[in-house]
Design a binder for these strands. Sequence first.
DNA 1: AATGAATGAGTTTTCATTCAT
DNA 2: AATGAATGAAAACTCATTCAT
Lengths: 210, 210, 210, 210
Amino acid sequence: MGIHERKQREKEQRRKQIMEAARKVFSAKGFNKATMEEIAGEAELSPGTLYLYFKNKEELHTSLSIDILEYITEQMKKFIDRQDINAEEKMNTLKDTFINVYEYDPMVLINLFHLQSGETLKNLSPEVLEELTETSSDALSAITSIVSEGIDQGIFAAKHPVAMADIIWATYSGVVLWVDSKRLLNNEKDFVKQTLETAFEIMLNGFKIK
Amino acid sequence: MGIHERKQREKEQRRKQIMEAARKVFSAKGFNKATMEEIAGEAELSPGTLYLYFKNKEELHTSLSIDILEYITEQMKKFIDRQDINAEEKMNTLKDTFINVYEYDPMVLINLFHLQSGETLKNLSPEVLEELTETSSDALSAITSIVSEGIDQGIFAAKHPVAMADIIWATYSGVVLWVDSKRLLNNEKDFVKQTLETAFEIMLNGFKIK
Amino acid sequence: MGIHERKQREKEQRRKQIMEAARKVFSAKGFNKATMEEIAGEAELSPGTLYLYFKNKEELHTSLSIDILEYITEQMKKFIDRQDINAEEKMNTLKDTFINVYEYDPMVLINLFHLQSGETLKNLSPEVLEELTETSSDALSAITSIVSEGIDQGIFAAKHPVAMADIIWATYSGVVLWVDSKRLLNNEKDFVKQTLETAFEIMLNGFKIK
Amino acid sequence: MGIHERKQREKEQRRKQIMEAARKVFSAKGFNKATMEEIAGEAELSPGTLYLYFKNKEELHTSLSIDILEYITEQMKKFIDRQDINAEEKMNTLKDTFINVYEYDPMVLINLFHLQSGETLKNLSPEVLEELTETSSDALSAITSIVSEGIDQGIFAAKHPVAMADIIWATYSGVVLWVDSKRLLNNEKDFVKQTLETAFEIMLNGFKIK
DNA sequence: AATGAATGAGTTTTCATTCAT
DNA sequence: AATGAATGAAAACTCATTCAT
């Protein structure tokens, strides 16, 4: 390995280290109550160092969201092109993927949905906004392709597949956010998984041609 | 009318005046970027006066959310006890209600969903939190009663009706938030109504016993 | 006196109080090393209060400069329209005025010349820049009128009077800045007055038709 | 050439390279807005390297000023000892020299005058301050010698020649700074040369015995 | 009840300088 | 000699909230 490669890797390492610390702090405090100083402390670095890797607090936060969006898309790509299962089975796998992602990192997922839906969006730098839009669009495309396939296979009713994908994503985010808030409010047990299961079952059932 | 009553009414008046101003400012700027001074200016009052009617910024914000939650519940109560229509028709009316509420005040609705799903929730005073929980619970109960009725009437599959209500609410908030963010990102036309229509259609279809 | 008037006067009072504190701190430390906190401390106010009266550090600084420019202009206006003395005598009075102003507040005068000649100028808000330009222009006009009068009276050589005014002002600022720096460097006694006297004598002599 | 000599020469080379980069950046941004990192980038070196050749940012800046002061002195030395021209002609040559220096590097000259007249001076290290004082004093001496010569030759009035030199230098810096600021403020064309010409003409005229 | 001037804690961000490699 | 990643102190500015009038 060349020296340049090692440097590159170390740099990437450091980025991850900062993002990991940020993940923890943002999850615990939310975007506004989290401070750069605390994130730096968690990463065992000085505040200034954070700014060598991320332009500002907002971009650090958005990087986390982009990360999980990419992870979701990656997971979906593992099965959307498979020939051995039909669209309905793929939809079930999608549901499992969503549940897995939620279980993998619930707080960042919640942060992503917050980010997607709010005032933060208005204050993002154009470049980051574009990256976010693009990554987001990738994820949606993957979902759309499943819906389209189902329509082609005569399984799903021929609604507009792009709108379908929106509805699937919206339901996903809606359930995650809502059920998460109920957990906060009522100290109820974590029933996100159960609710997601049911919601998807219903949605799938609703899509189908009877 | 006694002097006490008039005072009471004037006080209520003033509260409304402040909330109306807050509605505008929060809608335009979001919770964090909105300042008490701007709200006071909008209400043509001084900052100090706001604190005679609301304990702090957060409570003022939450009051708006409680307000719209009460409005939603009120709208639902108009038809849930009707004997002349069945659960499916009530569900359709619910959909229309949701769309109406969105059109009545989209920004406050969005703020409500943000509030329900976020860091703000963690920092709410116990009293306000309780009021919010209660009002929220009222709205959910109304939905639940429709679902229960549908199950009794043999129209809907016998899933747990409380979970069903959660899913309906989650879908509502998910669609509103998600589609709103797409509007921000892509400058697409306002297709919330259309998407809500389709989402509910699918959901209703999914609920039904085939 | 009405309540509004009193408020107005108090406000003006407070502005002066802050400016006085700023004058001291800027003089002692220079613009960059002076901190808003220190100025606030000197004014026995909190840092936040400073921002109620001045948009930022730069505007506070510039206000001082505008103040002294106005003072200079005011002093000049006292004699430029007098009919009983000729242009040469007015020029001598101008010299005395300049010396007086220097003695009245040397550090703010020095700050003014710094401001007029430097990077700060590039970072001023348009409004303040305009105010500065205007006030500056007033002062120059006053000088120009003396020169013009002298040319009309056949005392001064008929160079372009605007350029003459520039040269007078430039010499004034040059001598003040330069001699002040020599004081710093060599711990020499304050010989600004003496040098200004001589410089003006020479300049006046140079202007005259022989 | 010995190895030591070559090393020495390389070191000198590197110093020049850094100073050249600093010249550009300081000229463009001014002392405070210029960053060491940017200077390093301009010099195609790393920030750390700068500190091998200059103790700190201030010394780097001052080095530039000393440089141009030396250049001015060097230019003056070319003619002050000439026997074939009298003091008045030397004064005219001095004026041309000043204009040449201004045209050779206006920004560094302006920086020099800023340095000479300001807060920076207060924060200079004793060694650098001494070097600056010395170089500055050399330049002044050269001017003084011309004035003295003129007095001896019965051309100039017998004011104190040291004060005369101060006035000449002060006028030079005053005109350059003032006219430069007018260029910034009014976007006027570069009329420094013209103004310097006139100012010197007047001064020379003022010096002369009638 | 209403005011609004004053507060001052709290946070982001910058950048000269250092030092291990 | 050169690097450049890391440091961490420092400072401007904001704004929810208070309280004397």
